[in-house]
Design a protein around this nucleic acid. Structure first.
Lengths: 340, 340
DNA sequence: TTGTAGGCGTTATCAG
DNA sequence: CTGATAACGCCTACAA
């Protein structure tokens, strides 16, 4: 059916070993026969079979990426970061979304076995135990934005606490006393850390803290919209809203507009993530910048570093820093040139 | 090193064949031994080796996706659409960005060989000839948004001409006589079709047509920004701007704001693609809706249909339709409930 | 119901 | 420089 190395060998009148040498630039081959083999291969339209190759070399040249979903700018960016680094090291990406379904993620992990040299897993809800059971011990893994609780697994994440803490403090310093939070899903790791950062900042600053100021969303634009509506209807509404991600902040824009409130004149808004479209909003969105792209790159470097070097002594739990980007939506004087 | 089927067989005191049967639910196995094998496998933490398996079964369970880049909402959406369909059919995705570098795309294609059961290729600039040469004949391929010119390759794309034509006509019908275009890269297939749609509509309507109204961008926000600036400075500036994609339209928003022009009061703006963030702009962006997600799904279905059925008689060149979505940025009365 | 053996397409080790 | 040949990990007739 398919044309194999054997066919080429026969066509060129040599052994398979020699053909293999030619296609791998390994070992000596007389120039003359090399050419003959190349020609034979071309004539037959032969292409080496990657799968078979990796069976013998014990190297797949492939990195697995498991994400909860493939939706939105965050994932797009993280994949891009990983990919960029991966190809630099000669790897391809095997991506898969798990939809956070436990059975499905197990299936995904199993199917990765024997196809990838390493794995980057982002699955905010899955417990690390499930990971271990479904993976061969020898497969290097880097966790992305997950709980690390005691597992020996390497990981990398965002400095959520500091980011949220910093933003809330910023709002406080600019006069806001009632600062509301539109939080993410309670089960989500990042969301929890951002919530804690928010609370800690409020506590330290001595600002209002009440349950009614904490609304829970699910990271979607829609949920931000509704949350904002809910907040403005409060007897004593907030003067500032901090959304746990940009999508919800953008949704909040819509809700506030709907409610006849101007941003930032009536209510200040800030987000988290710094997704690309945030800066093109009107007003441009103040947010906590996370270099998602860099997060992906670092995760990949970490994995490849581990794979190649077989190191086991990274400090597990690397955290990438965040940075506050002040644009117009919080009504504070902008501190940089974050325009076009 | 790694634990293989042989180890399990030994541990359970059976032959490899029996172990294989258990793991594939194929052929009869006594319940008792089945359990014994399962336990042995668990004890040894055995996981079947996908690569080896696909070597014998001649099925990789994997679909290759080759994209020019992984940047932005378009690619994110298209991958998502493909993935959703792929997993429904039991396939995983092997994604790779080619960066439109000819040498690199060849490397990618070669490395896909023997790892995937089919390929979805989006590479607006690569000629189909390059594809053929670098791929085994037997590998099913679906082209995405590419030139199809005579190649026997299956393909799917967007109805760019009709979309652009429709939007320009819409603007004309609402009183605009000087309608500018911010076009995409000349080498890009979609961009060319959109340009033609724009010109045809202008011609048919009898609106102004002049070179100065056609500015070339590169599909980035930044290029839209500069293009808009250039257009407003014209001696006789346009009353409407049609950008060949949403990103450039969003950039145009910025440029017009900078120039002190109000959208849509001073100048109407429309885009193409209907990326998610467009609807959260202020004003919300009028655009040509393309179901990118669906584009991905259809491409995948097409591929899988071909792979499974071995059909060779699709009508090649399927085109997914577009739809005009009127929001506030063009200043026309909205025709639907495209709000939140 | 289970085992044996050949093969999937490559690479790698040794002899020639 | 080149050629046999044994892996690589698994599946699948065919035989028992």
């Amino acid at each position: 059916m398919t044309v194999t190395i054997r066919d080429v060998a026969r066509e060129a009148g040599v052994s398979v070993a020699t053909v293999s040498r030619v296609f791998n630039d390994k070992g000596p081959v007389r120039e003359e026969t090399r050419i003959r083999i190349r020609q034979a291969a071309e004539r037959l339209r032969y292409h080496p079979h990657g799968g078979a190759r990796s069976l013998t070399t014990r190297r797949a040249g492939m990195l697995g990426v498991v994400l909860p979903d493939l939706y939105g700018e965050f994932f797009s960016e993280v994949i891009r970061g990983i990919d960029q680094r991966a190809r630099r090291h000669g790897y391809h990406l095997l991506v898969s979304s798990s939809h956070d379904d436990r059975a499905e993620i197990e299936a995904v992990l199993r199917s990765m076995r024997g196809r990838v040299d390493g794995l980057i897993v982002m699955s905010p809800d899955i417990d690390a135990q499930t990971l271990r059971v479904n993976l061969p011990e020898t497969l290097p893994v880097v966790l992305l934005n997950c709980l690390v609780a005691g597992t020996g697994l390497d990981s990398i994440g965002i400095d959520n606490f500091r980011g949220a803490h910093g933003m809330v403090t910023h709002l406080f310093e600019h006069g806001h006393r009632r600062i509301a939070l539109i939080g993410g899903p309670v089960a989500n790791h990042d969301a929890r850390e951002r919530l804690e950062g928010y609370r800690a900042a409020l506590r330290e600053a001595g600002a209002d803290r009440s349950e009614e100021l904490e609304v829970t969303g699910d990271f979607t634009v829609r949920s931000g919209y509704h949350a904002a509506l809910q907040l403005v209807r409060l007897p004593s509404p907030p003067t500032a809203i901090f959304a746990a991600n940009d999508s919800m902040a953008i949704g909040a824009f819509g809700g506030l507009r709907k409610a006849g409130k101007a941003v930032p004149e009536d209510i200040a808004v800030a987000g988290f993530d710094d997704i690309p479209s945030g800066r093109y909003m009107n007003p441009p969105l103040t947010t906590v910048h996370v270099s998602i792209h860099e997060l992906g790159m670092r995760a990949c470097e970490r994995l490849v570093g581990g794979v190649l070097a077989g190191e086991r002594d990274h400090a597990p739990g690397e955290v990438v820093p965040t940075r506050i980007v002040v644009r117009r939506s919080c009504g504070c004087p902008e501190n940089g040139n974050e325009g076009l």
